[in-house]
């Protein structure tokens, strides 16, 4: 029963909403709108579940004194401070000082830290492209040349060198790039449809947990 009930719900709702999409009636529309509201509520619960799981994970790490356990204190403190200030400064309590503190912490602590983490990538990318971007084969040479053209086409120096470089860069993006992207998109679309069908029909059960057993 523990497995059959979720499978039955997925089967019934999966078939129902597939048909609903093609039925332009008032009852069908109302059902769709109502379920959209349910989904919004369920999404919020998913957020609560994720938060609970995160807190649980770090609490266990601290309790068992796992490697780097003290970092978990920073995470938990961050959740408590930002969460607390966010709630107190939000529409429910409207405490100005809390909203101000939340905004300052976000703009002057969280945002620069997040940006700095991402900015480090530029250094690694430069180093990695120097070491790995080699014309070792015909395919690698094609990749190298097209990468060069696109990089040059984006920056003003490209047009300064030759006015047609931006056009060639756009051609690379709009023709060979798009041909491959379309192929990938078709593959994803067909794969998603096949997976959805397998889930609706109960063939694919790994989402139930237990590795599909």
């Amino acid at each position: 029963m523990k497995q059959k009930l979720p499978l039955l719900i997925v089967l019934v709702l999966g078939i129902f909403f597939t048909i609903q999409f093609f039925v332009p009636s008032r009852a069908s529309e109302v059902t769709y709108q109502t379920t959209l509201q349910w989904w919004l509520v369920m999404s919020s619960f998913a957020m609560v579940l994720a938060l609970g799981s995160l807190i649980n994970h770090h609490a266990l790490k601290i309790k068992r004194r796992k490697e780097g356990w003290w970092n978990s204190w920073v995470t938990l403190a961050g959740i408590a401070v930002m969460g607390g200030l966010g709630i107190l400064g939000g529409p429910s309590f409207r405490m100005g000082w809390a909203n101000d503190a939340y905004t300052r912490l976000f703009l002057f602590v969280q945002a620069p830290m997040d940006s700095a983490m991402f900015a480090i990538l530029a250094f690694y990318m430069a180093s990695a492209s120097y070491r790995a971007f080699r014309a070792r084969s015909r395919e690698a040479t094609v990749l190298l040349v097209s990468g060069f053209v696109v990089m040059l086409g984006i920056i003003p120096f490209g047009a300064m060198l030759w006015h047609r470089i931006p056009d060639i860069a756009e051609w690379v993006m709009m023709v060979p790039n798009m041909a491959s992207k379309r192929g990938i998109l078709f593959g994803i679309g067909l794969g998603a449809t096949a997976t959805a069908l397998k889930i609706i029909l109960g063939i694919e059960r790994s989402w139930l947990g237990g590795g599909g057993k």
Binding site: A126, S129, Y130, R131, F148, M151
Partner: peptide, 12 residues
Amino acid sequence: HLLIMGFIVLGN
């Protein structure tokens, strides 16, 4: 971009 392109050329 120019610097990275320069590095790639040197590397090659």
